[in-house]
Amino acid sequence: MGEVIVITSGKGGVGKTTTTANLGVALAQLGLKTCLVDADIGLRNLDVVLGLENRIVYDLVDVVEGFCRLRQALIRDKRLDGLSLLPAAQTKDKTAVTPEQMREVTEELRQEFDYILVDSPAGIEQGFKNAIAGAERALIVATPEVASVRDADRIIGLLEAAEIPPARLIVNRLRPGMVRKGDMMSVDDIVDILAIDLIGVVPEDEQIVVTTNRGEPAALSHDSRAGESYRAIARRIRGDEVPFAEMDEPAGFFSRLRRIFGQA
């Protein structure tokens, strides 16, 4: 029996969909059968981030309305064995699916997959309620900004109220250089304020823009720092003890110089 994990944040634009796509890739690379579910009905995105937008025939709403069987709506990723996508509908709105229907869909997926990652829409309305309906675990994505951390705190409260076990935090788009200069909150600052466990830190990485342009998630290649972070998170999801890497700037000339002079 697989496990259903919702990826959520409250605030939009912090990287939920990119995180979902990359964790899916990283879990599949570990040989775990993984299904990604786009719960953002009406604003379908996960398909383009994964580069699977041309292969959609049926979607989540078709499944719950009985136009097709679940299996027919799943898109298998040809680049990576074990990764599938259940796309959202683009033309319907959030009321097209109820939390109860969502629970049934994820329950059916649990029979076949090791992990089901549900990409939640932003906000705390029905779309969010659908996304968490079948979830047994939650990952919260937050960037080191006041608005994002504030919204994450609200989401933590709502997940507690929904009796989903304590969520774990992914700090996204961290810029270690700015943290060192005192111009960005550190991972510790955020963990301290939110009082939840950390599961990973993803540094700001231009490769994310490039790989998203191409529809090839960064975790597919081995030359991206963000991709490396996603692979570490995937292993922690599986239950491995993976030490947290020191989040540091690449050891360029100046940073080495700074370190020598004790200013790093």
């Binding site: 006041v146 504030r150 705190d153 609200r154 409260g157 005192g182 960005m184 600052d189 304020i193």
Partner: peptide, 30 residues
Amino acid sequence: MLNLFGRSQSRDVAKNRLRNVLAHDRADTS
């Protein structure tokens, strides 16, 4: 911590603002 120009670092400002706003949010939401 203060920077060269005697202004507090934006990291600390962010932390304080967050603590403040969350104290209210948490009391409000429940």
